[in-house]
Design a protein around this nucleic acid. Structure first.
Lengths: 139, 139
DNA sequence: CGCATAGTTTGATAATTGTCAAAGGATTAA
DNA sequence: TTAATCCTTTGACAATTATCAAACTATGCG
């Protein structure tokens, strides 16, 4: 059994964690690991729709950012989230991200399963809001 | 008074938020806004150490990701965090990120103000941990 | 050894991004 | 209108990155 190099908990950098998570493929990996706790790279990779070398690149990115821990058993490599380490370093961050990812999955326009709300109206037009205590200077 | 186009709360994408936050300059902007609540672009930009056009690019990135709201008053543009919107869309995320940013500021190696711990020893070497219920098959 | 399995590394490429510099709005002041 | 202020846009460029393909390493099996 062997371990690959991982950053110590204290040296995990927020910016790198966020960047690691700011990719759809890597987020998908993290979400799977959040449910399945530990998986082989092969298992994770087969469902991602990317080449195995691409997947390997993402494993490395996640590992070097301190998001996942990889251990090798025979020919297999098992990946797992560094939940406790991340919680110790950045309390609540991982949970918030995972919860947010689920909130993001539920498509807003069809979340209620009823109205196809005209969200596009907001997306490209100026928002009418926040007049607030504006330091306007004249009427 | 005018408003620039902003994404509606329901259309804010987690990946874009994380990517927006995964940059040191933008994180710095967000941290300032978290404290000062609202500032002009000029105020924020002067302390960032980047060209004003670069700063403008970052404002845009943050705005399009749904992280900040910008309103124009005369020649000035005021920026503010979309705290309530982000909380509504991704509960706890912004708070966790802000707390994490503060935890990241406190340099771990000198946090105790005493020992210049050999963190580099961990950074590049294999970690001894997580033997756990490993499906090892032999001694 | 020879062969298969599991991932990584290297090479190549296209896309994205952070940066500065310079020109371009938009607004206020005179 | 001209000038000044505030910020954005465009252009250029270097660095990073996501991707696939192919070669490579490491392990296990006979």
């Amino acid at each position: 059994m062997r371990l690959l190099p991982h950053p110590a908990t204290e040296t995990i950098q927020l910016t790198e964690v966020l960047r690691a998570l700011a990719d759809p493929v890597r987020m998908e990996i993290v979400l799977r690991l959040a449910v399945q706790k530990e998986q082989t790279c092969s298992n994770v990779g087969e469902e991602l729709g990317v080449h195995k070398s691409t997947a390997s690149h993402h494993y490395r990115t996640l590992r070097e950012a301190g998001v996942v821990m990889t251990r090798q058993v025979g020919r297999l490599k098992f990946m797992r989230l560094r939940r406790e380490d991340l919680d110790a370093r950045f309390p609540g961050l991982l949970d918030a991200v995972l919860a947010a990812a689920h909130a993001d999955d539920a498509a807003p326009a069809t979340a209620h399963g009823e109205d196809t709300v005209p969200v596009t109206a907001h997306a490209d037009e100026p928002v009418r809001a926040i007049p607030e205590g504006v330091p306007a200077h004249g009427g």
